[in-house]
C-alpha cells in the first residue's frame, strides 16, 4: 500500500502522541492519518504510542461494573454485525478512503473556487467546528500568493509537489506552519500539485495584489 521511500517531512512526536492518545481534533487527525498511512516510519511510531496507551489503560484502577451490564451485552451478541466490519480493508490504489468520504466522489465532482490563474481551492466538510479543511490545486509552476497564518496550518501533499524558501515537498510530505510564518509556495514545474490543508484560523495574504481578498477569507468549517 505504501510507496513511501521519498517522504521526508513528518509530523512531530508531540503530534503523533496526541494522535495516538485520541486527543487531536478531527480535522487534524484526518491529515495526520493520511500521512501515517503513507509512511511506514510514522506508522511504527504510532504503533508504539498505541502500545503505550494500552499499558496505561491496563494500569488503571478498575471501576467495578455491574453484572447486569454483562448480561445486557451477552443478550446483544446475536445482533447482526454492521456490514462494514466484514472487510474493512480499503487498500484500493488511488484516492485515500478518508478523502473519498470527505469529497463524496472524485476530484472532478468537487466545486472549486478560483483564486488567480494558478490556484483553486475546494472546501471539504469534516464537521470539525474549529478547523477549515480544503484541497489546494496549484498548476504546475504556479505560485500561491505570499501569505501568513493567523493560526496553525497543516499541509499534506497528495499529488505532485511544491517548494518554498525552506525546502521542497513531495507526495506524502507533512508540514506544519505556525502563525506568522510567511511563505509563498510554488508548485513544481513538472506537474500540478494537490495538497490538503487544515487551518485553525484563516489565511492572510500579505502580497498587496491579493490583500483585497483578506476580508473574504473567513474560516469555513462546513
Amino acid at each position: 500500500m505504501n510507496d513511501n521511500a521519498v517522504t521526508n517531512f513528518h509530523p512531530g512526536l508531540d503530534l503523533i502522541t496526541e494522535f495516538a492518545a485520541g486527543s487531536l481534533p478531527l480535522a487534524q487527525s484526518a491529515c495526520v492519518s493520511l500521512h501515517i498511512n503513507h509512511c511506514c516510519h510514522c506508522q511504527q511510531t504510532a504503533g508504539q504510542l498505541a502500545d503505550l496507551g494500552a499499558n496505561l489503560f491496563e494500569a488503571q484502577e478498575p471501576v467495578p461494573v455491574d453484572d447486569t451490564l454483562l448480561h445486557a451485552v451477552l443478550a446483544r451478541l446475536d445482533e447482526e454485525k454492521p456490514l462494514e466490519y466484514a472487510n474493512k480493508k480499503s487498500t484500493e490504489k488511488g484516492t485515500p478512503a478518508i478523502l473519498q468520504r470527505l469529497m463524496r466522489g472524485d476530484f472532478s465532482d468537487l466545486s472549486w473556487k478560483n483564486i488567480g490563474a494558478t490556484l483553486r481551492i475546494s472546501y471539504l466538510k469534516t464537521g470539525d467546528p474549529d478547523h477549515e479543511v480544503a484541497l489546494y490545486h496549484i498548476r504546475a509552476g504556479g505560485r500561491i500568493p505570499q501569505h501568513t497564518h493567523r493560526g496553525t496550518e497543516m499541509t499534506l501533499v497528495l499529488e505532485g509537489g511544491f517548494s518554498d524558501a525552506n525546502g521542497s515537498y513531495h507526495k506524502g510530505d507533512f508540514l506544519v506552519r505556525q502563525a506568522d510564518d510567511v511563505h509563498a509556495p510554488t508548485a513544481l514545474q513538472s506537474e500540478d500539485c494537490i495538497c490538503l490543508a487544515v487551518l485553525d484560523a484563516p489565511l492572510k495574504f500579505t502580497d498587496w495584489k491579493f490583500r483585497w481578498m483578506n476580508p473574504f477569507l473567513k474560516l469555513r468549517t462546513n
Binding site: 494522535f19 495516538a20 485520541g22 478531527l26 487527525s29 484526518a30 495526520v32 492519518s33 501515517i36 498511512n37 506508522q43 504510532a46 504503533g47 498505541a50 478512503a97 478518508i98 468520504r101 470527505l102 463524496r104 466538510k125 469534516t126 464537521g127 470539525d128
Partner: peptide, 10 residues
C-alpha cells in the same frame, strides 16, 4: 461528521 474516529486512526 462523515468520519468516525476509526476512519482517521492508525
Amino acid at each position: 461528521t462523515p468520519l468516525s474516529a476509526e476512519d482517521v486512526s492508525e
